[in-house]
Amino acid sequence: MHSPFRRIAISLRVLLVIVTALLATGCGPAFSPEHPLAIRVIIPSELDALPLQLGVERGYFADEGLAVTVIAEHDQYTGVHTLVGGGADLAFGAGTIVVESAYRGLDVKILAEAGWLGERTAAIVVRGDGSVPDLAALAGRTIGAPSPGSQDRLLAQARLDNDSDAVPSARVEWVLMDMSERTASRLANRDADAVVLREPWLTDAVRAHGFIALAYLGDTSIIHPTSVYVATTGWTKKHPDAVAAFQRALHRAARDLQDDRAAFDALAARHLNLAPDTAARMGIPVYPTSGPSVLQLQRIPNLMQRYGILAEPYRVTPLVLASRP
Rank of each mutant, 00 (worst) to 15 (best):
P285S: 09
T220E: 04
N189C: 00
V230H: 06
R281N: 12
S185V: 04
A192S: 10
T203G: 14
D256C: 11
D241K: 10
R190H: 08
P276L: 07
D256A: 15
V206M: 15
A184G: 14
K237G: 06
T203S: 15
R281A: 14
W201E: 13
L197K: 07
L267F: 01
T289I: 14
A279N: 05
A249V: 01
T220S: 08
H209L: 04
A275D: 11
R186Y: 04
W201N: 13
E199D: 12
Y216A: 14
L214P: 07
A263M: 11
D204S: 13
P225Y: 12
L197D: 06
A249Q: 01
L257E: 05
L267M: 04
Q258Y: 01
A249G: 02
V228P: 05
E199C: 11
A244V: 02
T278F: 03
D277N: 10
I284L: 08
M282Q: 14
A266T: 05
T203H: 13
A269I: 07
A268E: 03
S185E: 10
R182Y: 12
V196N: 07
H251G: 03
V195G: 03
D265V: 11
G291Q: 15
R281T: 10
A245L: 01
D219Y: 04
D219P: 02
N189E: 04
H224C: 03
P200Y: 06
V243Y: 00
K237S: 09
R270V: 01
R261D: 10
P285V: 03
A269T: 07
T226Y: 02
P292R: 15
N273A: 13
A268Y: 04
A244W: 01
P240G: 06
A231G: 07
V243R: 00
R255V: 03
P285I: 03
L214A: 10
V286K: 10
Y229L: 06
Q258D: 08
S221D: 12
Y229D: 09
D204K: 14
H224N: 08
T232R: 06
P276A: 11
I223K: 13
D260W: 05
F246P: 00
L274K: 10
A188C: 03
S185A: 09
E199G: 09
L187G: 13
F211A: 15
W235R: 07
V195K: 04
F246E: 00
R252G: 00
R207W: 11
D241G: 05
S290T: 15
R255A: 08
R252S: 01
A279I: 02
R261L: 07
R182D: 14
I223E: 14
R182V: 08
M282C: 09
H251T: 01
A213E: 15
T226V: 12
V286L: 13
K237H: 07
D241N: 10
H251Y: 10
A253S: 08
D241Y: 02
V230Q: 06
A280K: 08
A208I: 10
R261V: 09
R198M: 13
H271N: 03
L267N: 02
G291N: 15
G234C: 02
D193G: 02
L274V: 09
D260Q: 11
L274F: 05
A244L: 03
D277L: 08
R252D: 00
A208F: 10
I222Q: 12
D193K: 04
L250R: 05
D193R: 05
V195M: 06
R261F: 06
H239R: 06
A280R: 10
